[in-house]
């Protein structure tokens, strides 16, 4: 392992970290803009042109806000909560293939930070730790609203993770690999997984909404009932971390959906363009970001359209609809694969 390799990985990680942060930062602005547009308003438009400086102003405000901690809070856990949430939100981006590869001076540089062969398992492991950030934060605040929010978050995430996992299993069965890089590479051109797994995609999408705690599944926050849910007692940048992590999660979920079901960096007719490998890679990354943008928009679109589920409806949907559907999907996929192998 030479130095250039380490430097290249380090640069790539930094670039992706910065991109995730900037995207999350501007996602807050876009979200507010979209909310405005959906409601016939303008959204923020005072800080800079089209409110372009709004995220900076918000960030600055959060930094200068009073650092408040409830007296009865568990100090260590109280700080651990948001830190963990932020850390976990950022960790997933390591295995997502942001592009195919770039050739510089005869060496091929992959545009994926770590193509570990159990990429999907890694994502799941990280996702399931994600609930701890919220749970710990809600518990440490020593506030009943925060605690209820945290409990809801925990039960919701656990229930929806099951269906999500089973939706992905079908992808694993189809592709025969757990590596995200490999899964994306198999969807070359227009050969996207969504054509084979429409139900799986749909299940995954619904679960992704639930996993990111966004409307219509935003019960952990649920302003109308729980003040602010698990982050009721948080202020200043600690609150900022929670809010920020939500947008990073949204970004990562959009990236996951795009790479698992919509071909990641692949786009139709990519072989007919006659472009060099590097140009094609860049174009592919661009296509990937277009897909991510679309799903990001979908997240916002749904949020500003649908009302929140009631808690029992949420649980019923998760356990009685999504999980059976996911199981049926697994069985059908298994049957089709078996028939195919025997023909």
């Amino acid at each position: 392992m030479d130095y250039s390799f380490i430097i290249y990985k380090f640069t790539l990680a930094t670039v992706i970290l910065i991109i995730s942060l900037v995207v999350a930062m501007y996602a807050t602005l876009i979200e507010r803009k979209m909310a405005g547009f959906f409601q016939d308003r303008h959204g923020p438009n005072r800080a800079g042109k089209f409110g372009i400086l709004q995220p900076l102003a918000d960030g600055l405000k959060l930094f200068f806000k009073e650092e408040f901690m409830p007296q009865s809070a568990d100090k260590f856990l109280y700080i651990l909560g948001p830190s963990l949430t932020m850390l976990i939100a950022l960790l997933t981006s390591a295995v997502i293939p942001w592009g195919s590869s770039i050739v510089i001076g005869g060496t091929e540089y992959s545009l994926q930070i770590a193509d570990i062969n159990i990429g999907i398992l890694y994502v799941f492991a990280i996702l399931s730790i994600g609930v701890y950030g919220i749970m710990i934060g809600g518990w440490a605040s020593n506030n009943k609203y925060a605690l209820i929010g945290a409990i809801r978050a925990a039960s919701q995430m656990i229930s929806y993770e099951l269906a999500m996992g089973m939706a992905i299993i079908t992808i694993v069965m189809m592709t025969g690999t757990l590596s995200l890089g490999e899964i994306v590479a198999q969807q070359h051109g227009f050969n996207w997984n969504v054509w084979y797994q429409p139900l799986g995609f749909f299940l995954f999408l619904v679960c992704a909404f639930a996993e990111t705690n966004r409307a219509p599944f935003d019960l952990p926050e649920c302003e109308t009932e729980l003040v602010g849910g698990y982050h009721t007692e948080y202020s200043s940048m600690k609150l900022g971390f929670y809010l920020f992590a939500e947008y990073i999660n949204m970004f990562i979920s959009a990236a996951m959906i795009s790479s698992l079901y919509f071909g990641g960096y692949n786009f139709p007719f990519m072989d007919d363009l006659g472009l060099s490998h590097n140009a094609l890679s860049l174009l592919g990354s661009l296509a990937f970001f277009v897909k991510i943008t679309f799903f990001g928009f979908l997240f916002m679109w749904v949020r500003w359209t649908l009302p929140r589920f009631r808690y029992d409806q949420l649980m019923r949907l998760g356990w009685k609809t999504l999980i059976p559907l996911a199981i049926v999907n697994v069985i059908i996929t298994g049957l089709v694969l078996m028939i195919k192998n025997h023909m």
Binding site: F38, Q39, D40, H42, W301, W304, T305
Partner: peptide
């Protein structure tokens, strides 16, 4: 969702 989408292009009331 189609209803909300159509509002994207409506005149702003602000």
């Amino acid at each position: 969702m189609l209803i909300t989408f159509s509002h994207l292009f409506k005149k702003k009331t602000t």
